[in-house]
């Protein structure tokens, strides 16, 4: 049997492998050398690779993002970390106008190979500005790949694969997943970036989730009485979305529940609904159901957080409505 390690340890293993394998790789970002910002995902990197290749920066997000983009243009392959996605708003000009748009704008004459690691860090009464999950924002811009692994095997494999890409990849990890355990080979391996994965097969309902909502859905489905035949899809890639996988599943089940822990307007759930409504409408036996965050900023109070984030009971109720 393979050894089991945590999601955070899998990220750490990937980073060590990348830095050993690829001389062009280096880390840069705010707070990357302190566990307070990045948990134990960066353990040992500074010690092994030194401050030139593991650069902790001032909180100058836009400037530092430009630095990473420039280094990428000049042949390096930076790993740029945002310990909280909330602070990426500061860097939107460099990320979007430059990282995402410049390669095509310059007729494909340049490449910007850059891995942007964005951490979702929420809950614990942190309030609205320390809670955001922005995959719905980044999927909007042409030029990015956006991935969100849900388990340790993918966390490591997708990071290693992301470093094979020549375009910017936004890798989003959620601190709620850091203690999740899973089987992870000690060797260096790659996982596809653009493919969804069927976590469990079923015939009566398709549930689509990503990142930590995959864990939430899996656990909920395991505890459901009567064992309904539900197919659970782990999106893995937010951009591109593996629409073929979604449409095949919906063609089989005729029912769709989207579970997405971001704001509901114009985001991941909305895009999945667009795909199925435009390309798989005839398969649908019931209207699509969506569980997302409310269209409201995250609250601080624990009593409010409990109602704000998707819960197992929301999923159970939605399944009941769709196939009960």
């Amino acid at each position: 049997m393979l050894r089991r390690i945590s999601y955070a340890a899998a990220i750490n293993e990937a980073f060590i492998a990348i830095m050993r394998e690829k001389k062009e790789a280096f880390h840069i970002g705010v707070g990357i050398n302190t566990p307070w910002f990045v948990g134990n995902t960066m353990t040992g990197l500074l010690e092994e690779f030194g401050p030139d290749r593991v650069i902790d920066t001032p909180v100058s997000e836009n400037g530092v993002t430009g630095l990473a983009i420039g280094a990428a243009l000049a042949g390096m392959h930076p790993i740029l970390t945002f310990p909280r996605m909330d602070f990426m708003h500061y860097a939107m000009d460099q990320l979007v106008n430059h990282g995402a748009l410049l390669p095509a704008t310059l007729g494909g004459r340049v490449k910007i190979p850059i891995l942007v690691r964005a951490i979702i860090n929420r809950g614990g009464e942190q309030g609205a500005q320390h809670s955001q999950a922005l995959q719905g924002v980044f999927m909007h811009f042409p030029g990015f790949k956006v991935v969100m692994p849900s388990h340790p095997y993918d966390a490591k494999g997708m990071l290693l694969q992301a470093m094979e890409e020549t375009d910017p990849v936004i890798f989003i990890d959620d601190r709620w997943l850091y203690d999740e355990q899973g089987e992870v080979p000690a060797s260096s391996y790659r996982s596809d970036l653009d493919r969804a994965e069927i976590v469990r097969e079923g015939t009566d309902l398709t549930v689509v989730a990503s990142s930590y909502t995959v864990v939430l859905c899996r656990e909920t489905l395991e505890s459901l009485p009567g064992a309904p035949s539900v197919e659970l899809i782990d999106l893995r890639s937010i951009k591109p979305i593996d629409s073929a996988c979604l449409l095949r599943s919906v063609a089989k089940t005729g029912r769709l529940l989207v579970v997405d822990a971001t704001w509901p307007k114009g985001g991941v759930a909305a895009e999945i609904c667009r795909i199925v409504a435009t390309e798989g409408f005839a398969s649908l036996k019931k209207p699509i159901a969506v569980i997302s965050l409310p269209d409201a900023p995250a609250p601080a109070a624990h009593s409010l957080e409990e109602k704000y984030y998707p819960r197992a009971s929301d999923i159970t109720a939605a399944i009941e409505t769709l196939i009960g």
Partner: peptide, 15 residues
């Protein structure tokens, strides 16, 4: 927009 990018090419030269 291109100012930090120029500095980034300098970072590449340094590395």
């Amino acid at each position: 927009g291109s100012i930090p990018i120029a500095a980034g090419t300098g970072l590449a030269s340094k590395l």
